[in-house]
Each structure stands twice: as structure tokens, then as C-alpha cells.
Measured scan of single mutants.
Amino acid sequence: EPLWIRPDAPSRCTWQLGRPASESPHHHTAPAKSPKILPDILKKIGDTPMVRINKIGKKFGLKCELLAKCEFFNAGGSVKDRISLRMIEDAERDGTLKPGDTIIEPTSGNTGIGLALAAAVRGYRCIIVMPEKMSSEKVDVLRALGAEIVRTPTNARFDSPESHVGVAWRLKNEIPNSHILDQYRNASNPLAHYDTTADEILQQCDGKLDMLVASVGTGGTITGIARKLKEKCPGCRIIGVDPEGSILAEPEELNQTEQTTYEVEGIGYDFIPTVLDRTVVDKWFKSNDEEAFTFARMLIAQEGLLCGGSAGSTVAVAVKAAQELQEGQRCVVILPDSVRNYMTKFLSDRWMLQKGFLKEEDLTEKKPWWWHLRVQELGLSAPLTVLPTITCGHTIEILREKGFDQAPVVDEAGVILGMVTLGNMLSSLLAGKVQPSDQVGKVIYKQFKQIRLTDTLGRLSHILEMDHFALVVHEQIQYHSTGKSSQRQMVFGVVTAIDLLNFVAAQERDQK
């Protein structure tokens, strides 16, 4: 057995438009009618409502009807409940999964919650491996369901041993009777949507819809739904939504950006999952974080739909894509998950301010006199920076000697690579993860907040409520011999709460 199987392995699926269902090699399930009293909570997966979006479509000038398939009504709160249950049931049916076995899954959280929910009911041990950027709410729900959680670096490539995929496979090879159901490759993922989600949409719309818009992560949702719609409703256009920084969209030119990270969760990847059939997507749109969270908040405030950030991405694209539809036509959007997962993220004004998705003037509360002053007023001194090749031991000596707790790590040209902190280095040394002679590049981390000289002290204040420091950066445009230009970030300084307090105190003292 291989040590790991690539999540982007070539698909062996034989589905073709027009091929009889009787030739399918898979076990198919028909939607079942729910009894009045459910035998367990797993029976509350599927049969989610279709809700008309009344205000947002009109606000953006849509002539067509805009409908939302509300997947956050599933038992675990997301569309991923469907595939989690289906993968477990299919693994039980073919004898792969037996009582007492362990389920391991690399996930952005929602599939993990679905699997942990099913594992709690069915009696399996469950280990979820997820990147650090995923919300604390997801972690809390997983723990409450009895799952064990392993976190991995957000910026690790999918084929790196440190990625959530790599760590999951390492655990599988170490733990007896453990299984990775593997949402990236498992046919049960798109089949769950082909058999149930798509049929529900067709039934709820009486077979009449002209466009379907869905955000894409593993691709199982859009693949399964689109294949069924292509068979039953061939005139329906399928629109895929991919965040900026991901590479799922086609044509490839759409993916060209210097951005590699994004805040919206559960969609987009740096590889093409095996289950994603991009041939059934008629057109791709890219979405960005700001519009995703703005539209998610709009869905909550104006439509009462308590959905997550990827739902915002989907609707932001839908109001663009559906401009081509006329009166009497219908566009369906998939709202994948609930706001429950993001209470401390985009639902929080403070978080939105820190990330730059909300401006101070958007909030009406009274601010102190210094709130709208610029960061450049602080008069920061030149920063202490270190090269990635310097040793951890030497870096600790320098920081202690100069009285700093942290320093930016830059390359020879001064471009920011990340940050090192005294606390992080000492804990890594004590844990045996690094040696004093190791290069400081081994303990770089990139989960820090950046701020510009033109940003306000109010925004800085919000950042420092949650973080010990902020890195002050400025952009530099560099022209190359080819005539092309590129933008790079340079370090201007490091600012802490002490710097802000000293500035405010000094100004008030001078005024007296």
C-alpha cells in the first residue's frame, strides 16, 4: 500500500453525458421521505430548503428570480454533511469501515464536522487534520463531537509532509485500522450531490432553472449537481466560483495573481482535486475576500440567511453572472454553511477592521482624538531585521541585547519573508524542534498583521487588541530589464502597544 495517494490523481470516472444510468458502476440512493420521529440526527441530513432572495437581486438590477439552496440546514450545519454520511455509508457497505475503526480526514473543517457527527452516532474514533487558518468555532464544535484535532501550517503546499493532507496520511500509516475516506478522491463525494442535492433542486424548481452558481473546494458539490442538471435540464448554465489565490478556475489566465492566501474558508485549493470535473462548468468567476464577507453580511442583514463567507462569494458572483438572465428565468445559488463557524471572524466588526474589510468610518461609535491620525505620526525608528541564514542562537542574543521581542526576517534585497519572535524561538528550542545552530528560517511564521503608514491609529489599535505587534510595510514598484514591473513589500518598522501608548501619553502631556 502506498504511503500516500495524491489528492489530485487523474480521475478514473467514466461518467458521460447521455450515458444510461443503468451502466453506472456505483451504488445510487434515492431521496427517502422522513418519518415524523427521526431514529437519529443523521436522518436530518439532506432535504434542505430552497429560499427566495428578495432584496439583493433587485438591489443589483437582476431581472431573474434568485433562489438560495440553504445547505446550513443540514444536521452539522453545512453541505459537507451529505458527503460525510455518504462516504461512511459506502465504506461500511463495501466492508472497508468496521466497528471500532478510526476515521482520519484532512479538511478545512466542515467535512470534519460532518464526519465527527456521523462518527459520534456510529461509534468510530475520528481524527481531523486541518490548517491553522480555520476558525476556532470549527475546532470547538469538533472537540465537542469527540474528534481529535491536529493543526497544520496554512501556507504548507498540499504535497508537503507538513500539509493537512501529508499529516493525515502519516497518521494513517501509524494508526492500525485507520482510514482516510479522502473527500478529494472519493466518488461518494460527487455521488452524494448527484443522487440527492441535484434531485432536490430539480424537484423544488419543478425542473425549471436557467443558471446554477456554486463555490468550489473539493469540487464534489458542483460536479455532482452539474452532471445531473446537464442530464435533466441541459439549458442550465453552470457557474463556478473560485477565490483569488486558488488555481481551480479555467482558463488558467484567471488564476494569475501574486496573491497566495485568502481568508474565506472551505473553497479554493492549490491543486485540482480528483473529484472535480471542470468540463461540466460553463464559466468560472474569481471572487475576493472583501466581496465575500460584504455579501455574507448582506445576506444575514437583508435576507435573514445566517450563512458563512463562501455563501457571500457565491452570491457576489451570482449578481454578476445572472445579469444575462431575463424576467421569468431563474438562478439558484448554493449557500454551503452557517455563520456559526465564523462568529469571531467576519461577523465581528473588530475582525473586519483588522483585516481591512471594514473602515473605521463605517462604525458610528465615538472615537478618541488620536483615532484618525496616521501611523506615520508615530515617528517610528528604523527596524531591526535579520536574514533567514542567521542562526536561532545568534538571533536570540541580538533580540535580548537590543531589547526586542520580535524581528522581521528579510532577504538580501529587503523583501519581507516573515517574522521571528523570542517566545516562538525559545519554545521551539525547548520542544526540540530546532537547535541553536539551525537557521532562523526554520522558525519563520507568517501569521502576523501588516499595516501601512497611511493607515489610521484606530486601525492599529484594533490590531493591537488581539496581537502583540504589527509590521509596518510599504510597497515598492521595481522595474526589470524586460520592461515588466513587480510590486514588493518592504519593512518600514515594527509597532507595539507600548509605542502607541507612549505616543498618546506624550501628545497629551505636551497639550497640557
Score class of each variant (00 low, 15 high):
residue 239 I to V: 04
residue 243 P to I: 06
residue 244 E to R: 01
residue 244 E to V: 10
residue 244 E to F: 05
residue 245 G to S: 08
residue 245 G to C: 12
residue 249 A to G: 12
residue 249 A to D: 01
residue 255 N to M: 05
residue 256 Q to P: 04
residue 256 Q to A: 12
residue 256 Q to V: 13
residue 257 T to G: 09
residue 258 E to G: 12
residue 262 Y to E: 03
residue 263 E to C: 08
residue 267 I to V: 10
residue 268 G to M: 01
residue 269 Y to Q: 03
residue 271 F to T: 01
residue 278 R to S: 10
residue 279 T to D: 01
residue 280 V to S: 11
residue 281 V to K: 01
residue 281 V to S: 07
residue 281 V to D: 04
residue 284 W to D: 01
residue 285 F to I: 12
residue 285 F to N: 07
residue 285 F to G: 08
residue 286 K to L: 01
residue 287 S to I: 11
residue 288 N to C: 12
residue 290 E to V: 10
residue 290 E to K: 13
residue 290 E to S: 14
residue 291 E to I: 08
residue 291 E to N: 12
residue 293 F to Y: 05
residue 293 F to H: 06
residue 293 F to C: 04
residue 294 T to N: 05
residue 294 T to L: 01
residue 295 F to G: 07
residue 296 A to W: 01
residue 296 A to F: 07
residue 297 R to G: 01
residue 297 R to Y: 01
residue 301 A to V: 13
residue 302 Q to V: 08
residue 303 E to A: 14
residue 303 E to S: 08
residue 304 G to M: 03
residue 306 L to S: 07
residue 306 L to R: 01
residue 308 G to N: 04
residue 309 G to W: 01
residue 310 S to A: 06
residue 310 S to L: 04
residue 310 S to F: 04
residue 310 S to P: 01
residue 311 A to G: 09
residue 312 G to F: 01
residue 314 T to G: 12
residue 316 A to R: 14
residue 318 A to C: 09
residue 318 A to L: 01
residue 321 A to T: 10
residue 323 Q to K: 10
residue 323 Q to I: 05
residue 323 Q to Y: 10
residue 324 E to C: 01
residue 325 L to P: 01
residue 328 G to A: 04
residue 329 Q to L: 09
residue 331 C to M: 14
residue 334 I to C: 01
residue 337 D to I: 01
residue 340 R to V: 01
residue 340 R to L: 06
residue 341 N to D: 01
residue 343 M to E: 01
residue 344 T to Y: 06
residue 345 K to H: 01
residue 345 K to F: 01
residue 346 F to T: 04
residue 346 F to L: 11
residue 347 L to P: 05
residue 349 D to W: 01
residue 350 R to S: 15
residue 351 W to N: 05
residue 354 Q to S: 14
residue 354 Q to W: 14
residue 355 K to H: 13
residue 355 K to D: 03
residue 356 G to P: 01
residue 357 F to G: 01
residue 358 L to I: 01
residue 363 L to S: 15
residue 363 L to F: 09
residue 365 E to N: 01
residue 365 E to H: 13
residue 366 K to L: 12
residue 366 K to T: 14
residue 367 K to H: 01
residue 372 H to T: 13
residue 380 L to A: 10
residue 387 L to C: 08
residue 390 I to Y: 15
residue 390 I to K: 01
residue 392 C to T: 12
residue 392 C to L: 11
residue 396 I to N: 10
residue 398 I to C: 07
residue 399 L to G: 01
residue 400 R to T: 01
residue 400 R to P: 10
residue 401 E to A: 15
residue 401 E to R: 05
residue 403 G to W: 15
residue 404 F to T: 07
residue 405 D to R: 08
residue 407 A to R: 03
residue 407 A to F: 10
residue 408 P to T: 04
residue 408 P to D: 01
residue 411 D to T: 14
residue 411 D to W: 10
residue 416 I to L: 11
residue 416 I to K: 01
residue 418 G to I: 01
residue 419 M to R: 08
residue 420 V to D: 05
residue 423 G to F: 11
residue 424 N to D: 13
residue 424 N to V: 12
residue 425 M to Y: 08
residue 428 S to E: 15
residue 428 S to L: 10
residue 428 S to V: 12
residue 429 L to F: 11
residue 432 G to F: 09
residue 433 K to R: 10
residue 436 P to I: 13
residue 437 S to F: 12
residue 438 D to A: 01
residue 440 V to C: 12
residue 441 G to P: 05
residue 445 Y to G: 01
residue 446 K to P: 09
residue 447 Q to M: 10
residue 448 F to I: 12
residue 451 I to E: 01
residue 451 I to Y: 09
residue 456 T to L: 10
residue 456 T to K: 12
residue 457 L to Y: 12
residue 461 S to A: 01
residue 465 E to S: 11
residue 465 E to G: 13
residue 467 D to E: 12
residue 467 D to W: 11
residue 467 D to G: 11
residue 468 H to N: 14
residue 470 A to D: 01
residue 471 L to R: 01
residue 471 L to N: 13
residue 471 L to F: 10
residue 475 E to L: 11
residue 475 E to M: 07
residue 480 H to S: 09
residue 482 T to F: 12
residue 483 G to Q: 13
residue 483 G to P: 15
residue 486 S to Y: 11
residue 486 S to R: 13
residue 489 Q to P: 15
residue 489 Q to G: 04
residue 490 M to Q: 11
residue 491 V to F: 13
residue 494 V to S: 13
residue 494 V to A: 08
residue 495 V to T: 11
residue 497 A to L: 01
residue 498 I to Q: 01
residue 498 I to F: 08
residue 498 I to R: 01
residue 499 D to V: 01
residue 499 D to F: 01
residue 500 L to F: 11
residue 504 V to L: 07
residue 505 A to Y: 13
residue 509 R to H: 14
residue 509 R to V: 15
residue 510 D to K: 14
residue 510 D to Y: 15
residue 511 Q to C: 09
